[in-house]
Amino acid sequence: MGIGERGHGEITVGALTAAIALEYAPTTVFFRWNGSDDITEVCGDGAAELRNDDSLEIELNYQNGDEVILQAVRPVGGCNSLLIHSANPDIQADPWQ
Rank of each mutant, 00 (worst) to 15 (best):
L83K: 04
F30I: 10
W33D: 05
V13W: 12
D90S: 15
T17W: 10
D66M: 01
N52V: 13
L83E: 10
N88D: 15
G65D: 02
L56F: 03
G2E: 06
G77C: 04
A19F: 03
Y24R: 10
L16W: 14
L70D: 07
T28I: 05
G7A: 02
L56T: 07
E59F: 05
D37V: 07
I84D: 07
G4D: 06
L50K: 03
M1T: 02
Q63D: 03
L22W: 01
N64Y: 00
A21I: 04
L60G: 01
E41N: 03
T40E: 09
E23V: 06
L70F: 14
G46Q: 00
L60W: 05
S36A: 13
A72H: 09
Q63C: 00
P26G: 01
D94H: 15
G4T: 05
D66S: 07
E41P: 02
S36I: 12
C43Y: 07
G4Y: 10
L50R: 03
G44C: 00
E10D: 13
P75L: 13
E10V: 14
C79I: 14
I58V: 15
A18P: 08
Q97K: 13
S55L: 11
A93R: 10
N64I: 02
P95T: 09
I20P: 11
V76K: 10
G9E: 06
I20C: 12
G78Q: 14
D38C: 03
G9W: 06
Y24P: 03
D38G: 08
E10S: 13
P89Q: 05
A47Y: 00
D90R: 11
L56Y: 04
E5D: 10
T17Y: 09
G4K: 07
I20S: 09
A25V: 08
D37W: 06
Q71K: 14
P95Y: 08
N34W: 11
A25F: 09
I91R: 05
Q92C: 15
R74H: 09
Q71W: 13
E41A: 04
E23Y: 01
D66F: 00
A18S: 10
H8V: 04
D45H: 09
Q63V: 00
N88C: 12
E5R: 02
L50S: 02
R32K: 14
L82H: 06
R74K: 11
N52S: 10
A19K: 02
A18T: 11
V68D: 06
D45Y: 08
L16K: 14
N61M: 07
G78P: 07
P95V: 09
G78E: 13
A25Y: 11
V42A: 00
H8A: 02
I3P: 01
Y24W: 08
G7Y: 05
R51F: 04
E57M: 15
W96F: 12
E59Y: 05
I69L: 11
L83I: 10
S36G: 11
H85D: 11
E10N: 12
G14K: 09
N52M: 08
E57N: 14
F31E: 00
T17C: 09
V42K: 03
E57W: 14
I11F: 02
D94R: 14
D54H: 10
A72K: 08
I3S: 06
P89S: 12
A21G: 02
V73R: 03
N88M: 14
D94C: 15
A87D: 15
Y62P: 01
E5M: 04
L70A: 10
D38M: 04
A48S: 13
H8L: 01
T27H: 04
F30Q: 07
F30A: 11
